[in-house]
Design a protein around this nucleic acid. Structure first.
Length: 304
DNA sequence: TATCCAAGGTAAGTT
DNA sequence: AACTTACCTTGGATA
């Protein structure tokens, strides 16, 4: 067992672990106390969280990484040196002060940033991100999370850590081998065939989410929509929360509400044009940061 | 207690 | 291309 700490004040713009992993952008983290989403994300939470690094990240078996934020440090424990993984997964290398400073002056954006200061975007493993956002269609955040937990328990490799059994997120071939009926039994509903077929596409090498990376933003979004169950919105989520396209602004119900109430001129009808307009309104390069703050702020009861 | 509704949308079919 | 409609499931709101 290795352990380490990362001082929060060494990170530009600070950090808030709870709002980062409970904001609805990532579904690869869980709380050891099993109370994910039960208390509203707010600065000050000090629960232990864990994630399981997929084997294609570790080069060997999946690795459990445990982390919590307390007394001004991010503590971690794992069987390997987890710090570089945490820096990447939780985007601790982002200059959050600069990102906030580059955000346009706007009452809604300021309120959202003030409410959850320290929240960072994430870099989720691409396959898990793809599957979890396929599952997100017309679904509540807490239930999306529950689906991912059940998928991991049912199809993912077991990993022992600190006297407990954890499960990695399934590999593409493991999910591809599932049947639609089995996935429906896990509560996926009409998303079940989408997940199976997309997993099959990745397993066979027909397409892989990583291959979207490196393309210009809109071309990358187009690439991802070839997966079954992936439209423009889900594609934007994968680009933003996994592949590092910080300009992506997923147009979900909350953002569409915000557009209607605050930026009606950005409603251009089609997804592509509206997306372009709100992306510009949110400052372009880091528009996805603004989107995620606004999403969390509105979803947790902030004044629209 | 029963019914209704909406949840981080997408695919397939029509105009 | 833009517009409709069906789709699983369920916790929480409403009657």
């Amino acid at each position: 067992m290795e352990r380490g700490t990362i001082p929060i004040d060494s990170l530009s713009g600070g950090f808030d672990l709870q709002s980062t992993v409970e904001s609805g952008q990532t579904y690869v983290w869980a709380r050891e106390d099993d109370r994910m989403y039960e208390d509203a994300p707010a600065y000050g939470g000090d629960a232990w969280y864990y994630t399981v690094l997929p084997d294609d990240r570790t080069g060997g078996d999946p690795v459990v990484v445990r982390a919590r934020q307390r007394d001004g440090v991010l503590e971690w424990a794992a069987s390997i040196d987890a710090e570089p993984h945490l820096v990447e997964l939780l985007r601790l290398d982002d200059d959050l002060d600069a990102i906030v400073a580059a955000t346009p002056d706007d009452p809604l954006l300021e309120a959202a940033y003030d409410a959850y200061r320290g929240m960072r975007l994430v870099r989720d493993p691409p396959f898990a991100s793809l599957i979890s956002f396929i599952c997100s269609a017309q679904m509540r955040v807490s239930r999306i999370h529950g689906m991912q937990v059940r998928l991991a328990r049912e199809y993912g490799n077991a990993v022992e850590f600190d006297g407990r059994t954890y499960h990695a997120f399934p590999r593409p071939a493991q999910l591809a081998a599932a049947t639609e009926a089995e996935l429906r039994d896990l509560g996926l509903g009409y998303r079940a065939p989408y997940v199976q077929r997309t997993a099959e596409m990745v397993a066979t090498g027909e397409a892989r989410p990583e291959e979207a990376a490196g393309r210009p933003y809109e071309a990358a979004r187009e690439y991802l929509t070839q997966f079954v169950g992936v439209g423009e919105k889900v594609a934007d989520c994968v680009l933003l929360f996994s592949l590092g396209y910080l300009e992506a602004v997923p147009l979900d119900t909350w953002i569409r509400t915000a557009i209607a109430e605050h930026y009606p001129d950005c409603d251009q009808g089609s997804y592509a044009e509206t997306s372009r307009a709100i992306r510009e309104r949110f400052g372009g390069e880091y528009a996805g940061y603004a989107q995620t703050y606004v999403f969390l702020y509105l979803r947790t009861g902030g004044e629209a």
